[in-house]
Nucleic acid binder design. Structure first.
Length: 405
DNA sequence: TCTGGGGTCCTAGGACCC
DNA sequence: TCTGGGGTCCTAGGACCC
């Protein structure tokens, strides 16, 4: 029996929430941005999109295509709260809910839809519940798997509902450009183009051996996608994280060593604290650097022991940075911790280490209570505290919750 | 006064070991 | 006085996603 999967995708999520909670923005072209100096448009309202405002544009580009564009600094807590409440709505229809990102979820209603009627009535009911509760719209795609459900929601946006039944999959995707498929981006579609493969229909007909030769293991997945097949499950449980990282584009390009170090300490602290909060320790530490010309590179180091100690992270980042010869000023810095495992939470036998652990816990508690960076080390030199970043990839809770509150 | 930040997965070369 | 070969770990980078 074929599965029935729903993809619920909020329409211009951040912008819609802002328009709803600040009524004077309703019906206006707005763009949600971060609070940092060098920021980018995260979400544009549909009124703004009509002018050509797109995600990823900087403020000047946005204003250029739409001079009356209203810029709104995003509010993470509002979106995270809404996302959690949305999940509660979904859970009244099925226990099989995967919160894929802050504005997108997959629901497996194979076993539950008959309680409400057919899959379409479930979709209609969810749309109504979301609208009644938050006054925002979403688009729901229904299909036999996540790939097709996602596609259905993409083509029907905004405020849409589309059910692609198993028997209609082939015809629906036959003439669709491969780029429309979830997982085929700029590069792969360009390569496929040079091979004469432009539509999903053509992709599905292409012999597996041809795709395998060109794309390796991805080739198998491409072939399946061309046929509209996808066997990935709807994951109820959040998967164990593989890495925890933070990066920031600096307010201005810098080369001053002290400033760079101060930013790196702060990033190390953000990483360490998130790891501790969620009970993870990691073994690999990476540093990411971007130059003003956007050349970006990373350098990593594998430790002998697992850690989530801010200072251990920071010292190793210092080690890495000391091995680099800078060819220019620095635009972005990033720190991440990977090869994660659960912290066994056992107290170390070494006194020194135990003391340090309890010190870190105390500091974390104070910061949790009074806000970030209240308690800082003496060497902390960054004055302006700017954690006003917003990212659609966040989750409202768990490790991928980046809200430090 | 251009171009965010959070991730995952895959590749490919080299080190190292048996 | 002819360079086997498998496996794992480490590293850097790139494609893709929201």
């Amino acid at each position: 029996m074929s599965k029935i999967i729903l993809c619920v995708d909020m329409d211009a999520f951040f912008a819609s929430v802002e328009q709803r909670t600040r009524p004077y923005l309703k019906g206006k072209p707005i763009a949600v941005i971060g609070s940092a100096k060098r920021t980018v448009i995260t979400t544009a309202s549909y009124e703004a999109r009509a002018y050509g405002v797109k995600t990823g544009m900087n403020i000047y580009e946005g204003k250029k295509v739409c001079p009356q564009l209203i810029l709104v600094i995003g509010d993470n807590e509002k979106y995270a709260y809404t996302c959690m409440e949305l999940e509660r709505i979904y859970l009244t229809f099925t226990p099989d809910v995967e919160v894929y990102s802050i504005d997108e979820a997959f629901l497996d209603i194979t076993k539950s839809h008959h309680l409400f009627g057919n899959p379409e009535t479930v979709g209609i009911a969810i749309k109504k519940a979301v609208k009644d509760r938050f006054g925002i719209t979403c688009t729901i795609g229904i299909g036999p798997n996540k790939l097709i459900a996602k596609l259905a929601s993409d083509v029907q946006k905004p405020d849409g509902l589309k059910w692609i039944k198993p028997e209609d999959v082939k015809d629906t995707i036959k003439d669709l450009p491969v780029k429309e498929l979830w997982g085929i981006g700029q590069k792969i579609s360009a390569i496929l183009g040079t091979m004469g493969i432009r539509t999903c229909g053509k992709l599905g007909q292409t012999p597996l051996s041809v795709l395998r030769n060109r794309f390796g293991i991805i080739g198998m997945r491409l072939k399946a996608m061309g046929l509209g097949l996808d066997d990935s499950p709807v994951n109820r449980e959040e998967e164990e994280p593989k890495s925890i990282g933070h990066s920031m584009t600096l307010p201005r390009d810098i080369w001053e060593r002290e400033e760079i170090e101060a930013y790196l300490l702060r990033l190390s602290e953000m990483v360490g604290r998130r790891a501790r909060k969620n009970g993870f320790i990691g073994k690999v530490i990476s540093l990411v650097i971007r130059y003003p010309d956007f050349e970006t590179f990373s350098k990593q180091k594998t430790l002998n022991d697992f850690t989530n100690d801010t200072h251990v992270i920071y010292w190793n980042v210092m080690d890495i940075i000391n091995s680099i010869r800078f060819r220019d000023k620095v635009r972005l810095l990033g720190v991440s911790l990977s090869t994660l495992t659960r912290d066994p939470l056992q107290l170390s036998l070494f006194k020194e280490s135990r003391r340090r652990k309890s010190l870190l816990q105390t500091m974390d508690r104070i910061n949790d209570r009074y806000g970030d960076f209240t308690l800082i080390w003496g060497s902390y030199k960054i004055q302006e505290v700017d954690s006003g970043v917003i990212s659609p990839a966040w989750r409202p809770s768990g490790v991928r919750c980046v809200n430090f509150k």
